[in-house]
Design a protein around this nucleic acid. Structure first.
Lengths: 134, 134
DNA sequence: CTGACTGCAAACGTTTTGCACGGTA
DNA sequence: TACCGTGCAAAACGTTTGCAGTCAG
């Protein structure tokens, strides 16, 4: 069985062709906003409704299968949930890169300053990628 | 002259009572979303329009006088721009705390992994504050 | 005095909802 | 078969715009 189908079942989401396609795209593209997702889906399902995109994205977010990434000055994108990671966003070409960094030193420093019990560390770096800075 | 008035002039924004009040509130409360700001402003200017809030917030953002903070699963809040800092957000009471942490080790690690030329580092920690974890 | 700001109402874009139909389990 | 998902249209929501009157510089 294909990967996307298996994943949907694991998250107790009914397997429909539309959902499989959404998961496939997020898997291959990494990050997509609603408009990009709709455009891609339209090419595969000419009569798909935007409402279907929203409904599916929302149910996948609720089941913690995908997550919304809120980027400063940009539209939110969605990605499959995996190991905690940070994002690098190019201000010019808008490319988004995932990066796994060790945040333990920052968390240690934080612990000494605040009594918060931290659950998640959300880091977004913005700047210019190597292609755009040429 | 009061602080807010002076600040508005420094950022080339005309000084109106509505703007002074917005800056005063952001200064005292630290972070406010649009609805909170509107509610507070309504109590001071009963006939103020939501459009006025939006117009002022947008012009202040454009002049880099205030900035939008996008928080996972929450409404965006606005704050006066100051030294770069991170945010701690309590998932339960929604309180937001500012914290200045040294991100140089993370930036160094990043530099060794990616060719991005980083301009800004945006860090949001989510968790439970000390009052709520009692 | 002039241009910018305000408040109002309308417009706009985005997201959600209700419903009839069709597909999945 | 029973329920859930889909597509469509309408509704709801948040934000922006245009305009006439007012105010700051």
């Amino acid at each position: 069985m294909e990967n996307s189908t298996k994943l949907l079942k694991e998250f107790n989401l009914k397997v429909t062709p539309q959902r499989v396609a959404i998961v496939d795209e997020l898997y291959h593209k990494g990050h997509l906003n609603i408009d990009e997702l709709y455009a891609i889906m339209l090419s595969k399902f000419p009569s798909i409704s935007l409402a279907t995109i929203y409904k599916n994205v929302n149910s996948m977010v609720e089941k913690f299968f995908i997550s919304e990434v809120k980027i400063p000055s940009e539209k939110s994108v969605y990605e499959l949930i995996k190991e905690e990671h940070s994002h690098l966003v190019c201000e010019e070409c808008k490319k988004i890169e995932d990066i796994v960094i060790d945040t333990s030193s920052v968390l240690d420093e934080l612990k000494s300053q605040s009594k918060f019990n931290i659950k998640h560390t959300n880091v977004i770096f913005t700047g210019v990628c190597s292609e755009c800075s040429k």
